[in-house]
């Protein structure tokens, strides 16, 4: 299990935070769209966008207060589990920001979220395999 995400509230998720895409364009975090991530990965060269499907969501056994998210990642359908705070937002293809606790996400970041569910396909990144 990957160590928990930092529990301090990352400011790049704060509503109004300015995000720089690989194209150089600047957008607010709440205005990002799926295409922005896909395009940025294409331009960045070294990174690849993966589709990570949420397979299971349950309270973390090791870290009370966090949730364990079980993903299958990329073409190989690798199994990856991460522990995150319930308010941590994930970008779901075609849907936008989603979290296990949209109320807490709105309270802490001001970011409006959908409810993350099993079966949601999240944007994740990995290193581009050298050809």
């Amino acid at each position: 299990v990957t160590p928990a995400a930092p529990t301090n509230n990352p400011s790049h998720f704060m509503k109004g935070a300015i995000i720089q895409l690989a194209t150089g364009e600047l957008k607010r975090v709440e205005d990002l769209q799926t295409q922005d991530f896909v395009r940025s990965a294409e331009v960045s060269g070294g990174l690849k966008i993966d589709s990570s499907m949420v397979m299971d969501i349950r309270p973390s056994q090791q870290r009370p207060g966090l949730v364990s998210l079980h993903f299958t990642v990329g073409e190989q359908q690798s199994k990856v589990t991460i522990d995150v705070p319930p308010e941590h937002p994930f970008f779901v293809f075609g849907q936008g920001w989603s979290s296990c606790s949209p109320e807490r996400t709105a309270q802490l970041y001001g970011l409006t979220c959908h409810h993350l569910q099993v079966g949601d396909m999240c944007v994740s990144i990995t290193l581009q395999q050298q050809q």
């Binding site: 790049h12 922005d36 690798s78």
Partner: peptide, 25 residues
């Protein structure tokens, strides 16, 4: 004179998880 306030700008890849698909388990 008002000091220009610098606005932090974050890179796009800081927003999405790095789930290295070579990981497993």
């Amino acid at each position: 004179n008002v000091e220009p306030r610098s606005v932090p700008v974050f890179p796009w890849h800081s927003l999405v998880p790095f789930l290295d698909s070579s990981q497993s388990g």
